[in-house]
Design a binder for these strands. Sequence first.
DNA 1: ATAATTCCTAGAGTTAACTCGAAGTCTAAC
DNA 2: GTTAGACTTCGAGTTAACTCTAGGAATTAT
Lengths: 138, 138
Amino acid sequence: MTYSISEVAKKLNLTSYTLRYYDKEGLIPFVERTPSGIRLFKESDIDFLKIIQCLKTTGMPIKDIKEFIEWCSDGDSTLQQRYDMFIERKASVEAQMEELKKTMKVIEHKCMYYKTALEAGTEDIHKNDNIEDFITNK
Amino acid sequence: MTYSISEVAKKLNLTSYTLRYYDKEGLIPFVERTPSGIRLFKESDIDFLKIIQCLKTTGMPIKDIKEFIEWCSDGDSTLQQRYDMFIERKASVEAQMEELKKTMKVIEHKCMYYKTALEAGTEDIHKNDNIEDFITNK
DNA sequence: ATAATTCCTAGAGTTAACTCGAAGTCTAAC
DNA sequence: GTTAGACTTCGAGTTAACTCTAGGAATTAT
């Protein structure tokens, strides 16, 4: 069973334009076509697109994802590169999570700041606060 | 005590170009100047820039940050908007963390996948795997 | 068989966030 | 008082990732 480009777009919550763009950029060279040139997406193609979306979420640029796709079609000789890449992605995601946690602390502090200010009707009650205390975690 | 643009850039790990760009975009209208036009950053300006960096980390676009800055100079009448904004930022960061967690699971699975493939010398040992099982969390 | 819909490509346009170059001004050191 | 280095503005250039348009071909519905 195969899917049309618009079906895949709907399934993955992106547009046909984007899928054609990914194809143009060499991210999905494995997608087959009808004799008249229309793309036919297999289930396995959709799985690959899910991995591509996952890599994008980690902040990986498209040209790097393309390199990974090329490694995939190069077979077992590129296993080490692909392993290294995922280890590096893992470290990157860990770093991003750490940064988000720090960011969250500041945002939560600001939520409290404005909650109390709203209750008081003025920001003045924070006149003596020291924002550094929160950013530096004192 | 004040700081020059390049000192602030160094402190915040960005460039003078970027700081001037932020100024041009209205993110730091409070930064004062010498009579000859040179920017003098106060400690409180740097604190504001840290909040701006924090908002950027949450994925907030610059024109939205600008709106927040405008609210700040509009005083207490905008407390509700600012509170709502931070609540919304909090939800956004929570969503991002959730997505990163899901992404992490897939990445970790791929790390294992390639680790075992490397040990076996070939990807073939995963011939019967079903990637869906991992993506759908089975 | 015709009309509506969906597909195709090539290439142009958009947007965000920088990033830089040119030309000139300011300031500190000698 | 001149020179090196940092500062200024203005506007142009860059990059990534889409996003869309035009013009045409294929498929589906009536």
